Computed example of a mutant assay.
Amino acid sequence: MSTVSSVSTVSVPAPVVSRTAASVPDAAPPSAATPPAPAPETPYSRNRDRYKELINIIVNDSGTYSLDGQMKAFAETWGMYVNGALVIGDDPSTKYQDDEATVLFDKVFNSTLVQRMNQVYDNLVNAGIAAELRGEPGSISKLRYFSSLSEDDQKLYYTSQNGFDMSGNRQYANFDSFRNQLVENAQAQAAYIVKNPQAQAAYKNTDPGLAEALKTIESAKAGSGWSAQILSLFNVIGTNNPEPEPGRMRLTLDVKPSVPGAYNPGNLLDRVA
């Protein structure tokens, strides 16, 4: 065996050279991540900024906004709901909008303003139930109780009740037209009782002179003057107020709406002097 052939050779691998795409002229550049498609536009996404502005007014308890300003903001959001300005859409990619809208709606529902509206409404309903059980006509008792509220309370009730008719228009043009409608309802009911013996039997506690007295209400009076004339009328004419029978009293308690625990009436239920 020759010396040369008896020496084994070792194969040394070539060094690994890392090359980027840039170092290879013909290599294609790396593809960037495809951005997600934007969520489709919806009525809500178009009106979201204005909706948030209104909600910030409604839920603000610092006194920055007047009560009238907050009620106007509430009325505008109501109109947005009814007129389809806050519709989300059916595409799954709009779910985040749906979640956001739900949170904002809850903020409105739990706001001090809406709790105050609910309290005024509940109190007025309870007064109406008790009056009916005493034999007092509903429209008449509603007018009397509404007149006993402070003007702020009256406006809160008006705002919560001024919905939309079948044509999409608000039911009442303004606060005064709403109050005057209450008067007209009471006048019509009193006139009906005077002419209907069965109604007289059902509402035996209604003073027969009430129909004529209600005609004297001046709708042009504003503010506390409007309320004062009605309260004065009821003090002079009014109706008798016997206590309900025991069984009926139980019914009154059973149907009484719940009152929000977080609501603090403050001076909202002050009576008009």
Rank of each mutant, 00 (worst) to 15 (best):
A101C: 04
K107D: 09
G79A: 11
A73M: 05
V103D: 07
A101R: 15
G84N: 10
D68L: 13
D61I: 06
K95A: 13
Q97M: 11
V87I: 13
L104K: 03
T102F: 03
D106I: 03
V103H: 05
V108D: 01
S62K: 08
G63I: 09
G89Q: 01
D90C: 00
S93L: 04
G89N: 04
G89W: 02
R116D: 12
Y81S: 11
D91T: 08
S66Q: 11
V108G: 00
E76D: 11
D106G: 05
G69C: 08
L104W: 14
V108S: 02
E76H: 02
A85R: 12
G63A: 08
D106E: 12
L113N: 06
V108L: 01
D90Q: 07
E100R: 05
N60V: 04
S93V: 05
P92D: 13
S62T: 15
Q115Y: 00
P92K: 07
R116I: 00
V87Y: 04
W78H: 13
Y81H: 14
F105I: 06
M71H: 05
V108M: 06
L67N: 12
W78C: 09
L104D: 05
L67I: 13
G69N: 11
T94Y: 00
D99G: 02
F74G: 01
N83E: 15
N83F: 08
V59G: 09
K107L: 08
